[in-house]
Amino acid sequence: MLIVFKLLFIVFSLYNIFGIFQRKKGGSLGLLGALFWSFFWCAVIVVVLWPTTVQMLADTFGIGRGSDFVLYISVALLFFLLFRLHIKIENMNKNITKIVRRDSLQEKS
């Protein structure tokens, strides 16, 4: 059963890495983003294949359990992504305002 889960995780990670390359090629993902996400999914594969690496990392950072380390990293990552999403939405809002403004001024001229 464990092997099946491992296989599923690896296939899912490989699928995501493939997706990253596709998006990079299509221009919808920058180099930095592509590197970050490739590293992330490679790390997932490493952890799935050699779970003790998480414990080693946890020990390095002084965190007792490997699972706690994964949890902390996940929460930090989620906050970071949420923040980036927020920024993206705000930038889109600004662009919408620019269009609305241009439209209202053009109507007047």
Binding site: I96, E107, K108
Partner: peptide, 9 residues
């Protein structure tokens, strides 16, 4: 003079 925003900004 009225300038109209089509949506609330």
């Amino acid at each position: 003079v009225v300038l109209s925003h089509k949506i609330n900004r």
